[in-house]
């Protein structure tokens, strides 16, 4: 319950921004700049299914901001709303001060969108894809050619310009997608699961590029991901679970909320052991993914205590610093495997 009260606190800070919380408000006012993204009371449903529930948060300019969550958590819906792909049903979204519902065209001119599903025309070459994209954004002539050359060089695609995109690898295609998204020099880049289908090398390239455009072009970057390692690289993370915001902070601050070390015990009968530990030490031990797990300060001392008390039942015991996976488990009761979030309840 510690987690939910914390997340409520986080929510209330952002809710209050519009009304009276002074420091955040005055910051926005002094710089004469609205947040890159300002979401208030956003809800969305598909038929009976509620995909987003009363979401409120704001993303500052220049941030790299990650929405982390399992599939079905509401990330994709949020991405579609931010990218203007689907209309807003309830609540409000402002991007760079522009209302997404009523100033859709203006918003579209300001944002770059990189989809998870490829948006390239496979029958066209890399250069042709870029050129069509430029025309869609009102660019033409020498200006477009200059930007095209610049984008292709910057993304290491110059020697592939005449190849059809159907012949490119997944990593190269994603680079062309990035080139498309950044061609009109948007001030906000929105990416849906950008690392999906990329090998580690291509993933590193992607992040090099993202940090570079943030630094050089002052682009705000908003991405969705279900990969913890990717979320770790963001300035701030919002964890979405079943359509609600369950946490929002920097990766370090989120980990710090766990307060202590994470101890994981492999045993034959985890339920029994968890109950026994709870009874003996009067602490919360839970079963997650077939293992007993507890969070305590001074974990090394706990290990000694636990081995002494339940030695014969313990197959292995590990001590770790809390990770984002632990934060997620703490807030949602869901588990991770291979650093991806699973949908099933533990």
């Amino acid at each position: 319950m510690q987690g939910s009260s914390w997340s409520l606190r986080m929510k209330s800070i952002t809710v209050k921004t519009d009304n009276w919380t002074y420091p955040l408000f005055s910051f926005a006012h002094l710089t004469a700049m609205s947040p890159a993204v300002d979401v208030s009371n956003l809800s969305h449903h598909y038929g009976d299914r509620q995909a987003l529930k009363d979401l409120t948060l704001s993303i500052q300019r220049g941030e790299i901001f990650a929405f982390l969550g399992p599939n079905g958590g509401g990330k994709t819906t949020l991405f579609r709303l931010l990218s203007t792909l689907i209309p807003i049903q309830r609540g409000q979204v402002k991007i760079l001060g522009l209302d997404v519902g009523s100033q859709t065209a203006a918003v579209r001119a300001e944002i770059g969108v990189v989809f998870q599903a490829p948006s390239l025309d496979k029958k066209l070459t890399v250069a042709e894809n870029i050129r069509h994209q430029g025309h869609l954004y009102g660019l033409s002539g020498a200006d477009l050619r200059r930007r095209e050359t610049e984008m292709l060089e910057r993304l290491g695609l110059a020697d592939r310009a005449r190849e059809r995109t159907e012949s490119l690898s997944g990593g190269l295609r994603r680079r062309v997608e990035l080139a498309k998204g950044m061609l009109h020099q948007p001030r906000l880049l929105i990416l849906d699961e950008p690392s999906t289908g990329l090998d580690p090398g291509a993933r590193a390239d992607l992040w090099d590029y993202l940090t570079q455009i943030r630094r050089q072009d002052k682009v705000t970057i908003v991405l969705t991901t279900h990969l913890l390692e990717e979320a770790e690289r963001a300035d701030r993370i919002a964890i979405l679970h079943e359509g609600s915001l369950v946490a929002l902070d920097t990766p370090d601050a989120l980990r710090a909320t766990i307060g202590g070390d994470a101890i994981t015990i492999q045993t034959d009968d985890p339920e029994v052991l968890a109950a026994a530990i709870g009874q003996r030490f009067d602490c919360a031990a839970v079963v997650i993914d077939g293992a007993v797990r507890l969070e305590q300060p001074d974990g090394h001392q706990w290990i000694a205590r636990l081995v002494e008390a339940f030695g014969e039942q313990i197959n292995s015991i590990t001590l770790g610093k809390p990770t984002l996976a632990d934060v997620f488990i703490d807030r949602t009761g869901h588990r991770f495997r291979n650093s991806e979030i699973l949908n099933t309840k533990s």
Partner: peptide, 11 residues
């Protein structure tokens, strides 16, 4: 194939 989505979010 996904091409349409980038047209739909174009201004």
């Amino acid at each position: 194939e996904g091409f349409l989505q980038s047209v739909l979010v174009a201004p």
